[in-house]
Amino acid sequence: MIIVGYIFALIGIILFEIPTLILNKSWWEMAVFLGLTGFAFLLGLLMILQVNIPNPVYLINKTVEYFFDLVPI
């Protein structure tokens, strides 16, 4: 159900952007748009399917905590 809605939203976004891009013949913009949208879509889909995705914040936490240990406050 959510996935169906999600795909509809994606189609909506693509329909929303693409006509202007085609009219202006901006192909590079279109490539960037499709690339980014594809990536975002994939990420979102994985999250909906509850696949574990590495969390960038853990990395940040670890790094900062490492410096905490280095410099005792």
């Binding site: 976004i13 748009f33 980014l36 975002a40 990420l43």
Partner: peptide, 10 residues
């Protein structure tokens, strides 16, 4: 404009 919505999703 084209990058606005994908960045939003991200």
């Amino acid at each position: 404009l084209p990058v606005v919505l994908p960045i939003g999703i991200l």
